[in-house]
Nucleic acid binder design. Structure first.
Lengths: 238, 238
DNA sequence: TTTACTATCTTGTATATACAAGTTATAATA
DNA sequence: TATTATAACTTGTATATACAAGATAGTAAA
């Protein structure tokens, strides 16, 4: 048995996704949910606040919790999900080609970004994501070897995040992302199908564990016509 | 006097931005903050959770709250801020050209996106954002007249959000965003400086009030070389 | 009919308590 | 010395209470 409030969050989130609570309708009141789940109001409120943060509902004082349109969930790359999780969601035919995999002594740039000390090593892997026969995304990943000791081609073909979380037992927690548009390099042109494209979308990812240690830097290089980023943002007042 | 927890949040956030709590250091424990702010632990925890959500700190059970690198705050367009707020932050010389402003009967597409009923009207405005003498962004805004009755050139040149929040007294609450890359239209080429660019970054914004009513649809069209989007994402487990 | 009030329902804020669980430093033990 | 156990300190979860504040429906008064 786990967290009560997380369980309630997931149950209500599923209900919203499945249309049990349709968009524009209202959730039961906190008082009613208390009785439904046999718990305290604060626990219900924790679950509702999670739903609000993640764009499922909008709480209005005095009225209730309004269900928002959950189209949010054909999200391509917002949030922090692995390509495998993503591909599973969109349900397309996809393949991953591991183009490079080696343990390197990092150059100045990578050393600084990942905070590698003298003599420290880094796992580097280039992976091309193919969807419906087209090579669309080039993922350039760098892992601090202090945290990820060994990588294999099999792990890279499946899911590195799955390996890290399930095998190594680490908890991936948060990331800072940066999206820019640049001209493709020779490398991009060699590895991706870029005929006729003069720009490429670069998503830089700095990924951290639970304890705020930075373990991964990734550059995800997308063909512009297949790129889409969806986000949910709340306005902070003051 | 306002919210205690919001005040505490802002005070600690400012302290982090100003380096009073440097990156990688730890905040005082919840117990100590309780005493500092003469409040209860739950109130402190509300403030800390806000800081965590917004990428200021990482909480680690048993250890404390680790301060993260607050570079987050040279953000160009993540979150939900107006161009005026943004430009104020980056402190560059900017100008806004109001290219179009009229009350229209919306076409099918706009009607459907904004949920306009028969006979309903929409304020449409095109604004070009000039930074350091270059016309870089084209903002195409559509406002449901039900919520925004009247717009003037002066309001559009200053800040529509400021007008809505301060004059109309409405609370802008959240938005769904979508980022894609497309080929520029003739209109883009006419209004922006696009010599040599074959792509344009389109940020679609669906903006909602407090009570979950959709009042604005915006297409922000950016010259790709000047575009940058920064985001902070937490991984949701399960 | 219209207006104003009131009771009631909703969510928001602040506080207090209890215990669970993870971390760390210290002291006791082998 | 090295290991183990303990105590103290940290954050996490769950509960209960009280009151504030916004929304709504019904009632009473003008």
């Amino acid at each position: 048995m786990q967290n009560k409030y997380l369980q309630i969050y997931r149950e209500i989130a599923d209900n919203i996704r499945e249309g049990v609570y349709p968009a524009q309708s209202k959730l039961p009141s906190e008082h009613d949910l208390m009785k439904d789940y046999d718990t305290s109001r604060e626990t219900i409120r924790k679950a509702l606040n999670l739903l609000s943060q993640n764009g499922f509902i909008q709480k209005v004082q005095g009225k209730g919790s309004i269900v928002l349109d959950a189209k949010k969930f054909d999200f391509p790359i917002s949030g922090l999900v692995s390509f495998k999780e993503l591909a599973g969601r969109i349900g397309e035919r996809h393949r991953t080609h591991v183009e490079e995999l080696e343990l390197i002594t990092p150059d100045e740039t990578i050393s600084r970004t990942l905070g590698i000390s003298k003599g420290g090593k880094v796992w580097k892997t280039y992976r091309v994501r193919e969807i419906d026969g087209e090579r669309i995304i080039l993922d350039k990943d760098y892992f601090n070897q202090t945290y990820v000791e060994k990588l294999t081609k099999e792990i890279c073909e499946n899911s590195i995040y799955e390996y890290i979380e399930n095998e190594l037992g680490m908890t991936i927690s948060f990331a800072k992302k940066e999206i820019v548009v640049v001209e493709p390099t020779e490398e991009d042109r060699r590895l991706l199908h870029l005929e006729g494209f003069t720009n490429i979308v670069v998503v830089k990812n700095f990924v951290y564990f639970d304890d705020a240690s930075l373990f991964q830097y990734t550059e995800s290089r997308h063909r512009p016509d297949k790129f889409k980023f969806v986000d949910f943002a709340r306005r902070t007042h003051g």
